[in-house]
Design a protein around this nucleic acid. Structure first.
Lengths: 139, 139
DNA sequence: TGTATAGTGATACACTGTCTCAGTTTCGGG
DNA sequence: CCCGAAACTGAGACAGTGTATCACTATACA
């Protein structure tokens, strides 16, 4: 079952708690790393084979809208989904060795983006960074 | 036919010039904006219906390896391919209004990445930024 | 011009993601 | 506690992305 914290965030976002959504959150909580859509479907099917693929994708969309999950780009360009502890918009460093992620708060990025906006007369609506490398413990 | 500059860059990368590759480059040069794989297939098929889908993907891969094309993320998370004037590793600002892109040289990004590395004990192997917003002339 | 080798087309396969529609479940108010 | 509006679900069809194989072909270079 998904943690109480996640539940509260979903309710706060006006979304309902369902068995199916619980199982998606569960799979992500157990993994502690970004999962491909396929991996999530498989993990969910293990505890409940009757959950449809469409529901998994809808759930991921809903969780992303609530800021609970973030879609990231894995090494190789494949998309993955990551459960975020941090609330609000933020970015991630993805370790190519152990697969774990490090949160990068928006505040660490804002000065850089502001500089870019000023240099090019560009207004940033949305940004996402894919930074792959090795974390401190994998070097 | 792809420009001579692109031809030289492909030869320099040890790749052969073929009719099919020329047509992929052509499609991207005409568009002057990132294209979805499907759009490239359609554009190529218009001038030569016998070019296989697999060849288009292989060509995009080869062009990306030579730094001639970059895979970017379009609004909505869909992948797109962009012909790059600039050589070497760099990033792009994508205008959500007119679809055009602005090159962001690696040198504009390095100080930011260095700061991130120092703050988190992380070694960056590869980074790609998706920055969406409005360019100066679309505001 | 000849030839080693890179490139090609067809086809099959796997994954990602969206849509529709009838039926079900949840949440909040009474 | 029960009810109903509205959100959610499952099945299945569909479309795009991307990779692999294998026999065949075209290119670059000596």
């Amino acid at each position: 079952m998904g943690s109480a914290a996640v539940r509260d965030r979903m309710l706060a976002a006006g979304q309902r708690i369902t068995r199916q959504r619980d199982e998606v959150v569960d799979a992500l909580e157990r993994a502690r790393r970004p999962l491909a859509a396929r991996e999530i479907c498989d993990a969910v099917a293990e505890s409940n084979p009757d959950v449809g693929r469409a529901t998994v994708f809808r759930t991921l969309h809903a969780l992303a809208a609530a800021g609970i999950v973030q879609r990231v780009t894995l090494a190789g360009g494949r998309p993955g989904y990551l459960l975020c502890e941090a609330e609000g918009h933020h970015h991630h460093l993805v370790c190519t060795s152990c697969g774990r992620t490090i949160d990068l708060p928006e505040s660490a990025v804002t000065p850089f983006l502001t500089g870019v906006e000023e240099a090019h007369g560009f207004t940033v609506d949305h940004s996402s960074f894919d930074v792959h490398g090795r974390c401190a413990s994998c070097r």
